[in-house]
Simulated scan of single mutants.
Amino acid sequence: MIVDAGLLEGSGISAMQTIEQQRTTQHIFVTGDLRRFQTPHPDAIILEKLYFEPQLVAAIEQSLREPTAP
């Protein structure tokens, strides 16, 4: 799942916390400002906009290798 860290209402971080209350899922956060991005998971996979296909592919491959966070 590719999740935008900032949304008009709420955040992608809070959305993932809600989703993971039901089940764990591999995910990648996307943000336009890495300095303002804060997640409770220190090992979260994060892409900063503007990213290109090779970075996205690498992030997806990394998420598939790592176990999901509780």
Rank of each mutant, 00 (worst) to 15 (best):
Met1Asp: 10
Ile2Pro: 01
Ile2Arg: 02
Ile2His: 08
Val3Pro: 05
Asp4Asn: 10
Asp4Tyr: 14
Asp4Phe: 14
Ala5Leu: 00
Ala5His: 03
Gly6Phe: 14
Leu7Trp: 08
Leu7Lys: 09
Leu7Pro: 14
Leu8Ser: 15
Leu8Arg: 15
Leu8Asp: 14
Leu8Met: 08
Leu8Cys: 13
Glu9Gly: 14
Glu9Ala: 10
Gly10Lys: 00
Ser11Ile: 05
Ser11Met: 01
Ser11His: 06
Ile13Leu: 01
Ile13Asn: 09
Ser14His: 04
Ala15Lys: 00
Ala15Ile: 11
Ala15Pro: 04
Thr18Asn: 05
Thr18Gln: 09
Thr18Asp: 07
Ile19Lys: 06
Glu20Trp: 03
Glu20Thr: 03
Glu20Ala: 00
Gln21Thr: 13
Thr25Tyr: 01
Thr25Glu: 02
Gln26His: 15
Gln26Ile: 01
Gln26Ser: 14
Ile28Gln: 02
Ile28Lys: 01
Ile28Asp: 03
Phe29Asp: 00
Gly32Pro: 05
Gly32Met: 06
Asp33Trp: 11
Leu34Phe: 12
Leu34Val: 01
Arg35Val: 09
Arg36His: 08
Arg36Gly: 08
Phe37Tyr: 14
Gln38Ile: 14
Thr39Cys: 15
Thr39Asp: 07
Pro40Asn: 02
Pro42Ile: 00
Pro42Tyr: 08
Pro42Gln: 08
Pro42Val: 03
Asp43Cys: 03
Asp43Lys: 11
Ile45Asn: 00
Ile45Asp: 00
Ile45Tyr: 04
Ile45Phe: 06
Ile46Arg: 10
Ile46Cys: 13
Ile46Thr: 14
Ile46Pro: 04
Glu48Pro: 10
Lys49His: 10
Lys49Glu: 09
Lys49Val: 00
Leu50Gln: 13
Tyr51Leu: 07
Tyr51Phe: 15
Phe52Gln: 11
Phe52Trp: 06
Glu53Asn: 08
Gln55Met: 04
Leu56Asp: 00
Leu56His: 04
Leu56Val: 05
Ala58Glu: 14
Ala58Ile: 02
Ala58Asn: 07
Ala59Arg: 04
Ala59Ser: 09
Glu61Arg: 12
Glu61Ala: 13
Glu61Gln: 14
Gln62Ala: 13
Gln62His: 11
Ser63Cys: 08
Ser63Leu: 03
Leu64Asp: 05
Arg65Gln: 12
Arg65Gly: 05
Thr68Lys: 13
Thr68Tyr: 12
Thr68Cys: 15
Thr68Gln: 15
Ala69His: 13
Ala69Thr: 06
Ala69Trp: 01
Ala69Ile: 11
